[in-house]
Design a binder for these strands. Structure first.
Lengths: 176, 176
DNA sequence: GTGAACATGTAAATTGTTACATGATTAC
DNA sequence: GTAATCATGTAACAATTTACATGTTCAC
């Protein structure tokens, strides 16, 4: 799902500003997609030009704020994208990349990487648990349970082996 | 890790052609990074221009094949990149995106998505298990165990809830 | 009053995907 | 002979990141 579709996805639940979209994408979609502001605003411009979203007039002189609403054409486009999704997952993990090349790194950096990963996992767990599951559809709850299951497995693994790998890498280094 | 660094990473283990790099990245780094041929060849051109890799002369008139070798400067660059890695992970999951918006999809598409995800997970598990862990460094083995742990959690979850979610979404749809 | 969060946008640069274009080798 | 795999590269296009540039509102 690219940024354009992610935006349509959020807007299918209700109107939002560009800035609000960033928050929503981070908070609700964090476990399967992400988008930065610099990608969102151009995406919004393209969606507007294509008539898939429209700007809602809105009374606020001081704070410059544009609110967007998805159109019927936009809803159709979203459905369109959904029907062509695949089951693949793309993971980019600087953490695992670092560990894979730990033999070329400073021990301090390896240590930091492990600590950061644990913090990230716990943060993700917190985010997922704070989502209002009671108000969600079956599909939405499913994605959260799935993400919680893999996150929990990551945390359990790190708790079991996170400390040990540091000393193991150190030992391996000494023996060469 | 971008494609340039991924290439340097493979080449730090031994010489390779552009085509061979694609295979190696898929087979060894599949759990933390990916790169297509259309990205690898331009990356190789840039690395050559920067003197971080060099072409090895090589006797084969018929089959056009260039073999690359990492230089000292390339090894330094790789170490450089490694020291600035972070513990974040970026996941792009069309599968979870689809499930999140299952209420807008055809049931057939949801079904297909679930089946594809299970197949992907099993394929990934097979790939990870086929890697020669005995010949690897501690860090490399760690990345494989970590990936196996999260993959196994994904498979277990799908086996537990994969069938049920289809019927649950169907029920939810009927009741509205 | 100060810092965080809210708010919008542009632009340069980089990055990457997909398709095109071509041809050799290997195993069945 | 034919399909898969090996092999290199380009080009059009799409997408994204990061930094720049500016200003408001709110809570402490």
């Amino acid at each position: 799902m690219d940024v354009r579709t992610l935006c349509l996805g959020v807007l299918s639940f209700g109107d939002s500003s560009g800035y609000g979209l960033r928050r929503s994408i981070k908070d609700w979609f964090g476990h399967f997609g992400q988008a930065s502001l610099g990608a969102i605003y151009p995406a919004l411009a393209k969606l507007s030009a294509a008539g898939e979203i429209e700007t809602i007039d809105h009374v606020n002189a001081a704070l410059e704020k544009r609110v967007f609403r998805i159109t019927d054409s936009g809803r159709a486009k979203l459905r369109d994208h959904l029907s062509s999704l695949s089951g693949q997952e793309m993971v980019r993990s600087p953490f695992l990349a670092g560990l894979f090349f730990a033999h070329l790194m400073e021990m301090d950096d390896v240590h930091r990487l492990v600590d950061e990963r644990v913090a990230e996992l716990r943060g993700e767990q917190r985010r997922l648990r704070s989502l209002p599951m009671a108000e969600m559809t079956e599909g939405q709850r499913f994605t959260i349970r799935y993400a919680l299951a893999t996150t929990a497995a990551g945390i359990a693994f790190m708790e079991r082996e996170g400390r040990a790998i540091i000393t193991a890498i150190g030992r391996e280094r000494d023996s060469h």
